[in-house]
Amino acid sequence: MTTLTTTAAARAVAASKIYGTGDAEVRALDAIDVEFAAGAFTAIMGPSGSGKSTLLHVLAGLDTVTSGQVFIGDVDLSTLNEKQLTIVRRERLGFVFQAFNLVPTLDALENMTLPLALAGVKPDPEWLDTVVRTVGLSDRLRNRPNQLSGGQQQRVAVARALLARPEIVFADEPTGNLDSRSGTEVLSFMRRAVDDHGQTIIMVTHDASAAAYADRVVFLADGRIIDELVDPTAAAVFDRMKTLGD
């Protein structure tokens, strides 16, 4: 185990998340052990209620585990208080959500630089330029979210997640609200971030073709990891999901 800590960007050790008590008890995560390699694009899949979103939330410090441990790098998140968790999120992690990704009162550029601004850090101009160019929104930087299409909004969200050069980007159904063309744009962009810049990405999705962009797919059911695929294809993922009875 100890040798692996150096290469894993994030890992969960016997992590459980239990909601309610007694008869109403729900085990969203049931003593999960999982590791996510640095510089890799990992997808988490599973049917509704499998605990995939909960896993993402506890890994990202948005939620706490009932028992067990969660590490970002060498830091045990369960030992941190609310403020320290906020700092970890701001400085070490990036986020892309399915919806409500952007602050409506800020323009695209301000949204991208938001975590840096909150930390009081100036963005690296070269890197900013690279990200903006890669996202392909150079001419829309001063537009507000309601002036952008859904795909453009998600690309801004991804750009925001990448701009702080976080150790890990967490993406929660980033293409769930997009048509397939926009979804492809966003996913290729994420793939490139991994290939070109060595970014670590952990993505929750229920879409097999989205999962196919990943290096590795982890399958969850009933709060447990039941399988995984390396270098998946859409068809392989789709087959595996069917057997899970989604």
């Binding site: 906020t86 701001r90 959500f97 990704n101 952007l102 602050v103 409506p104 909150l118 930390a119």
Partner: peptide
């Protein structure tokens, strides 16, 4: 609510 939640998620402290 959702906007404020987003701000908190991407690293805004409660104090901020």
């Amino acid at each position: 609510t959702s906007e404020l939640g987003l701000l908190r998620a991407v690293g805004m402290t409660r104090r901020q």
